[in-house]
Write a protein that binds this DNA or RNA. Structure first.
Lengths: 145, 145
DNA sequence: CGAATTTTGTTCGTGTTAGTACGAAAGCAG
DNA sequence: CTGCTTTCGTACTAACACGAACAAAATTCG
């Protein structure tokens, strides 16, 4: 609330803002992630591989939507995955606008090897919370998406 | 858990992972942020200005620590704030390694005008939750930082 | 049916955040 | 003075989003 004396003061605590706290929590998660991830895989790269594993071959745009990424973002991620040999990009014979993305043999092996690791990463991230708190947190977080 | 038949399947649901959910929640928050923020100020830029408002003049490194940013990140943020006329960088006469950062008159006005807006942004981000859930969420989030 | 419009998919450029690695300069402790 | 740390800068990679541009497909309309 405004200070009655000056009128331009405001009771604002940065450390109480969700945005600031989420940035900090994400930073901590990222640190845990990269300490455990295989082959230097980033969280977004793994999310992309996991979606490809789920859905199979699909267009770049669709893949971006599935993995909650902007079209420009998913392009960069796919480019890097292709360069590392985990994904293949080919032209769609039925729709010349589209490029079809799929996992390579290497990509398939990596994503399956990553599943238990990703599980550990989540567990370690949530470690400061009790099991009940962890459930509650994920439930609330899902409401905010 | 592994599939007893193939041995290489795994019960992994991307949409249950905290990292993935936090990324989505952060994306939503960022969208709300930029629709309401003054002068195209980003969340990190505002956090930096808010810390400067709290602490007054301080070194670039210290400011980075206060705002939870890497040294390379805070440099970029300070550069942009300076270019926009919201911050001033000067040399520390007592320690030639340091550069001292402070708010300009414009920066002071902007950050104070932003305080109530930032409050609204937080409120809108947490809108899907009940007041009790909001408190709980912030409490749990703080434990994860 | 065929032309015009709209939608969809991809790419590129720009700007911001984020972290790592390396090095230079300055301060400090032994 | 010698080593160690701190501070800052630069370069590089990754992620993220927006807007603009272009091509191709789908749809609408005459």
């Amino acid at each position: 609330m405004p200070d009655p004396k000056t009128g331009n003061d405001y009771d604002y605590i940065l450390d109480d803002q969700v945005g600031y706290l989420m940035r900090q929590a994400s930073q901590k998660h990222a640190t845990i992630y990269q300490s455990l991830a295989l082959q230097g895989l980033t969280a977004t790269q793994f999310a992309t591989l996991a979606r490809l594993h789920e859905q199979g071959k699909c267009s770049q745009n669709q893949l971006g939507r599935l993995a909650s990424m902007d079209v420009a973002t998913i392009k960069g991620v796919v480019d890097r995955l292709r360069k590392k040999g985990y994904a293949i990009v080919e032209a769609d014979p039925n729709d010349k606008r589209r490029s079809l993305i799929s996992l390579t043999e290497q990509g398939l092996e990596l994503v399956e090897a990553m599943f238990p690791v990703a599980h550990d990463i989540t567990a370690k991230t949530l470690e400061p919370l009790t099991p009940a708190e962890q459930k509650k947190f994920v439930k609330l977080l899902r409401k905010l998406t």
